[in-house]
Simulated assay, not measured.
Amino acid sequence: MEIYVDADACPVKEIIVREAKKRKIPVTMVIDTSHELSDGYSRIITVDKARDSVDIKLINLVSPGDLVVTQDFGVAAMALGKRAAALNQNGLIYTSENMDRLLFERHIGQKVRRSGGKTGTMKKRTSKEDENFEISLKKLLNELEKC
């Protein structure tokens, strides 16, 4: 098992590394060239800034039984398709049961934005979201370690 992180805008990298170190699980963070990252533990892979470069590289690395941390529903869907687990930065565990709804909501949001509409505002990250993420991360890692 390995943890793969769509790390460009991931606010929970420290939590991931902390938990991975405890369990001696390798972590790979994938970023594009507009970011710099070094945490002393993770393998860092830097790709070009082309659209979806990080996503494509990350999914090409994933194997069954791995864990992918991403806020991108499309990346999560591909991870599930490769029999990996997927988790977002707020603690939502992606599953085959919620993926159709999430992808449909993303599609509707894209249509609204393309027509000039707005789909909401970004809220400031809270410590509760970090707590939810850590709880879900531990739960998923416990499940994956049993396999």
Rank of each mutant, 00 (worst) to 15 (best):
K13S: 00
M1V: 09
V62P: 03
I59Q: 05
I44S: 03
F133L: 06
E105C: 08
E131R: 14
A7Y: 01
R106E: 00
Y4Q: 04
I25P: 00
V54I: 04
M99D: 00
E105G: 01
R43H: 14
V5P: 00
R51H: 15
E19S: 09
R43E: 15
Q89H: 14
Y94L: 04
I3A: 02
K146S: 13
I16D: 03
K118G: 13
L137V: 06
T33M: 14
K57T: 12
M29K: 07
R114G: 07
I108T: 07
K57I: 08
A84F: 00
L37R: 11
R113E: 09
V47K: 01
I3R: 04
S42M: 04
V27W: 03
L103K: 01
I16F: 06
G91V: 00
K111G: 14
K13V: 02
E134Y: 13
S96C: 09
Y94K: 04
L140S: 03
K21P: 07
R101P: 06
K138Q: 15
K128Y: 12
A77C: 04
L102C: 08
K24G: 11
N90S: 12
S38N: 15
P26K: 12
F133G: 05
E129R: 07
K57H: 11
G40I: 02
H35A: 11
V75E: 02
T70N: 04
F73R: 05
L67H: 06
K124C: 04
L87H: 07
K49R: 15
A9I: 03
R83D: 15
S38L: 10
G120S: 09
A79Q: 00
L140R: 05
T28K: 06
R101M: 12
H35M: 13
I56V: 15
K118D: 10
N98R: 02
A77P: 09
K49W: 11
A76L: 00
I93C: 05
D66M: 01
L58W: 12
F133N: 08
P11L: 04
K123A: 14
G120C: 05
I59A: 01
K146Q: 14
T126Q: 01
L140K: 07
R125T: 05
V17H: 05
E129Q: 15
E97I: 09
I44N: 04
L102Y: 06
A86I: 04
E131H: 11
G65M: 00
Q89L: 07
E2N: 14
V68A: 02
K124I: 10
I25M: 08
S38K: 12
K24N: 15
S136E: 08
R43P: 08
V30H: 00
Y4K: 07
M78G: 06
C10P: 00
K111H: 13
R101D: 10
E131Q: 13
A76C: 02
N88I: 13
T33W: 13
V47F: 09
V30D: 10
Q71D: 15
H35P: 06
L137W: 09
Y94V: 01
V27R: 02
K82V: 10
R113P: 02
V62Y: 01
R114T: 08
V68T: 01
N60H: 13
E134F: 10
Y4A: 00
V27I: 05
V17E: 05
L137R: 08
V62N: 02
S96A: 11
M29I: 11
V68L: 04
E36Y: 12
K49T: 15
